[in-house]
Design a protein around this nucleic acid. Structure first.
Lengths: 320, 320
DNA sequence: GGGCCGGTGGACAACGTTGTCATCCGGTCC
DNA sequence: GGACCGGATGACAACGTTGTCCACCGGCCC
């Protein structure tokens, strides 16, 4: 900028004015400056600008894994909203590890992101308090965090309730639940919905039909249940990865899965799912974040997005 | 930092030394400083640090669409490598639009990323020259860019050649090619491999069996070909999205697809694919970038990654 | 002609950090 | 006792921007 000023024969501040479209510059002078900028290939140094102004026009996004289609869809939505607000996105995958989540968040904060969208891996977010005090906005997405803050989640229990109810209406009485680790909020909520649906139908809750754990063990769990005496006639799977793991076993009991996924309609039979919208989740969270950044006051909000049951065949198979 | 210094009763510089683990600080003093830092909840301002030091420890990643599983896998690999090198990733989706690609890249440059990994949407990258001169490293991934720079791509022509050869060996003589728009490098390379395989087998090249265009039109194109007189007995699809579009038509001719995808093994028949590794692509590109950033000299390299044919059933269907 | 005004441009400090160099102090060596 | 040394600490400038405030100039009004 100094060089540009020298080349154009004006003061530093005048160049700054031109670069920022500030009023009070003679058009002729401005033109000289623009020419000098073009000639020298000058580009403003954002770091210095950030240092001076305080706002970085950057938000941080912490998800579990970008490579998971659910979160990558969410990422894309966040990115689009950020773009519309002139912001960039720093993103990182926590891999469901609270320590890594914390590290990522604090690194983002050190870079003075304006705001954060976090899919919490842990449950303790006290480490965020000083940052919130410092004026960084935060929105929890997909799961609630360990403190009062804006939160966008989907109707996990309601969705599971609807999915399991669908199987019950098709005559099933022994329905297995394959879910993610019980420590994960979405998993326990969905289990709650499953239990409520069974209870409302007057069906017994059989612990041997419930398996919670990482997706890569879900296949084996399903095989074990089906091999046991008095096996389930239907399965409710607690997320997209688990649904895929169940399908990969080759068994084809009646099945309803939480989360829609590509090719669910191409498989035979098509896979009936309770769909939530990764897109909607990301968009809603990002929009809420930017509302806060633009100064919207008020207590922490908690938005719950609806789910939608999509019958495709697998969930309509009657019990044998 | 000023406040910390005051609280600990030392000079600014001493705090800086402690924060950066520089030698030459009395352990007792250091302890006082650490205590003051903890008490005040101080965290270093990276913007100021960047301003002073010049390196941002941030790289920019421009891909086509994070929500595409291929690119999200690549993203994850880049992120992991960056993490190991203590860097963060700013990412953006170009949506195959050269203008947007350029905007993203220039925005990243204004933020003084240390380096860039670009999946080029356009073919003209002269706009990058001033940035490269300014010391920003750049690696093109998945496709070559419009200038001499490090590039990591996969063996597109070879992979297509292998896939089409596989169909030929299973007795097919009329093989359709469904590819992405011909203007996209990977698409035209794969078409080249297809043509070479046909030529080597002495098969005629029939233009009516070739359809190039966006994935959402591939289904209709396939239906039209199959409805024509003398339809193809096999199809080679030029990328993952097009493979899915073809499957969604419900027709099940012999098929080999470029790109592996989740559930390819669960469909019946399993889908035979020419797999490339989004992971390997991202990792290789990022590692090359960090080698350059750590000062490795030498001319621009071009790395080609191999592909792998995975037979699963759909590619082994004989002609009727 | 003096005072004032709006339009233009510049000087300077400040943002929070780090690199350079100077200072200070206690001890050691001749 | 003075020169010297090494370790610890600090003062200060600089990074590139922007906000604040002041200076200048030509014209206009009384």
């Amino acid at each position: 900028m100094k060089d540009v000023a020298a080349a154009a024969g004006v003061a530093l501040k005048t160049v700054s004015r031109v670069v920022n479209d500030e009023p009070g510059v003679n058009p002729a002078t401005a033109e000289r400056v623009v020419a000098a900028i073009a000639q020298l290939g000058y580009r403003r140094n954002e770091s210095a600008r950030v240092l001076r102004r305080g706002r970085t026009a950057t938000i941080g996004l912490v998800i579990e894994d970008v490579a998971d289609p659910f979160y990558s869809g969410m990422s894309r939505a966040v990115e689009d909203v950020a773009l519309r607000h002139g912001s960039l996105v720093l993103s990182g995958s926590s891999g469901e590890d609270p320590v890594r989540e914390r590290e990522l968040v604090l690194t983002f904060c050190a870079r003075r992101v304006d705001g954060l969208i976090i899919v919490p891996a842990g449950t303790d977010h006290d480490y965020l308090l000083p940052e919130l005090d410092a004026g960084i906005a935060a929105v929890f997405a997909d799961r609630p965090g360990g403190l009062e803050a804006d939160t966008v989640i989907c109707d996990n229990a309601g969705g599971a309730h609807a999915g399991v109810g669908h199987l019950i209406r098709h005559g099933h009485r022994r329905i297995a639940f394959l879910g993610d680790s019980a420590s994960i909020f979405t998993a326990s909520e969905r289990l709650r919905g499953y239990r409520r649906a069974l209870a409302e139908a007057g069906l017994p809750a059989d612990g041997s039909l419930i398996a919670m754990g990482p997706a890569d063990r879900a296949g084996a769990a399903l095989c074990a249940m089906l091999a046991a005496p008095d096996p389930p006639t239907a399965v409710f799977t607690g997320n997209g990865r688990i649904t895929v793991a169940a399908l990969r076993t080759g068994h084809r009991p009646a099945l309803v899965g939480f989360d829609d996924f590509e090719l669910a309609d191409v498989l035979r039979p098509g896979v009936t799912v309770v769909a939530q919208s990764p897109d909607g989740l990301g968009r809603t969270a990002a929009e809420m974040l930017f509302r806060r950044l633009s100064g919207e006051p008020g207590p922490a909000e908690r938005i719950q997005l609806p789910t939608r049951l999509i019958p495709r065949g697998s969930g309509e198979i009657p019990p044998p």
